[in-house]
Amino acid sequence: MAPTRRANQADIAERLGVSVSTVSRALANEIGISPAVRRDVQRMARTLGYKSKHAVGITADKRAVALVPLGSATSGLSGFYFGILEGMKTAAADAGMLLDVRLVNESAVTLDLIKRQIAQADANGVLLAGIDAWDGLAAWCAEANVPVVLVNGSDPQMRVSSVAPANFYGAFLATRRLLDAGHRRILHYTHQYRPTILQRQRGFEAAIAATPGAVGSIINTAERATADLLADILAGKHDVTALFSWNDIAAVEMLEGLYGSDSSLPANFSIIGFDDLPIAGMATPRLSTVRVDREAIGRGAVRLLAQHMEGERAVQQLEVGVSIVAGETVFPA
């Protein structure tokens, strides 16, 4: 008896009346294929026993939509979220998950908007990048049994799962770097109190508290814009010798003024950022900062969402480790 021929993409295309190209793109989770066609292709692939090189265990049961804030994707944070999205796409392909990435206006994110995006993508799970949970969202997800994972976020009430960098320990390391250089009067410039950013402030406070003689002060962006804070520092309004910025963008904005030829600051004034965005490496001098593995955050978020889709009920908070980038902006005090 002749051996049974293994099914190929042409067999799937013939059964469904579509092109081989459409089958290939649907199996590879590429954009431009409608959810209905994608499901039909993958269902037929399973029926015929087709083995795809693109994903293990192709399934129509894993369809997710990732909502990314438009402002973050098109601003200085674009490098941050681009890395996260790359990690998401890689992990989704490995898990056989259909991932539909959509940009949304963060100032207009409501429960109704999220519901519409899920319906349009025909998804049964959602990834919220840079968007924090609230009571209505958490209650609806539990009632409707829709898995949700916060990406680069956390939920202190532990209603939904999340993946974020180790913000507390990263900030502790950043502050410790300044303290080890001999600085004892350090300013922390922080932002609006998202749970993730608050953890950075707490890490700063913990490092200061653990060091005898160290004094830390905190300024929020709601109190002083970056340019105003820079002017205050140059005018001597803050008795500090070092600054830990909540992110690289604000830190780089200050670099030219802090180290310019007309600056009255001492030569050993130090600054360290957080995230290791591309601009940190392009800055002159090279910004000292904390490196965040953004692709690992994206991969971890997809793996966690896949676990919830498979029935895992326990809320999980995954932290991705960070590391110090020495840079050129921390000097001995």
Results as ranks from 00 to 15, higher is better:
161 S>D: 09
162 S>W: 01
163 V>E: 01
163 V>W: 00
166 A>N: 12
167 N>W: 05
168 F>G: 08
169 Y>I: 03
170 G>Q: 03
172 F>V: 02
172 F>N: 06
173 L>G: 02
177 R>M: 07
178 L>V: 08
179 L>D: 09
180 D>T: 10
181 A>W: 07
181 A>T: 06
182 G>Q: 00
182 G>S: 01
183 H>S: 05
184 R>C: 05
185 R>I: 03
186 I>M: 08
186 I>T: 03
186 I>P: 09
186 I>R: 02
187 L>C: 14
188 H>Q: 10
188 H>Y: 05
190 T>Y: 04
191 H>R: 10
193 Y>P: 08
193 Y>Q: 11
194 R>Q: 12
195 P>V: 04
197 I>M: 12
199 Q>L: 04
199 Q>E: 15
201 Q>R: 01
202 R>E: 15
204 F>G: 04
205 E>L: 03
205 E>I: 02
206 A>L: 00
207 A>Y: 04
207 A>D: 08
208 I>C: 06
211 T>V: 13
213 G>I: 00
214 A>T: 03
215 V>G: 00
217 S>A: 10
221 T>S: 11
222 A>N: 13
223 E>N: 12
226 T>R: 02
228 D>M: 08
228 D>E: 05
230 L>Y: 01
231 A>Q: 12
232 D>C: 14
232 D>I: 06
234 L>M: 14
234 L>K: 11
238 H>V: 07
239 D>E: 13
243 L>M: 13
243 L>E: 01
243 L>H: 01
243 L>C: 12
245 S>F: 02
247 N>W: 10
248 D>V: 10
252 V>M: 07
252 V>S: 10
253 E>F: 01
255 L>R: 05
257 G>A: 11
259 Y>G: 12
260 G>W: 04
262 D>K: 15
268 N>Q: 12
269 F>E: 04
275 D>G: 06
275 D>K: 09
276 D>K: 14
277 L>P: 00
278 P>Q: 14
279 I>C: 05
282 M>W: 09
282 M>F: 08
282 M>V: 07
284 T>R: 15
288 S>I: 05
288 S>H: 07
291 R>Q: 11
293 D>P: 05
294 R>W: 01
294 R>K: 14
295 E>G: 15
297 I>M: 05
297 I>S: 07
299 R>Y: 01
300 G>I: 01
301 A>Q: 04
308 H>L: 02
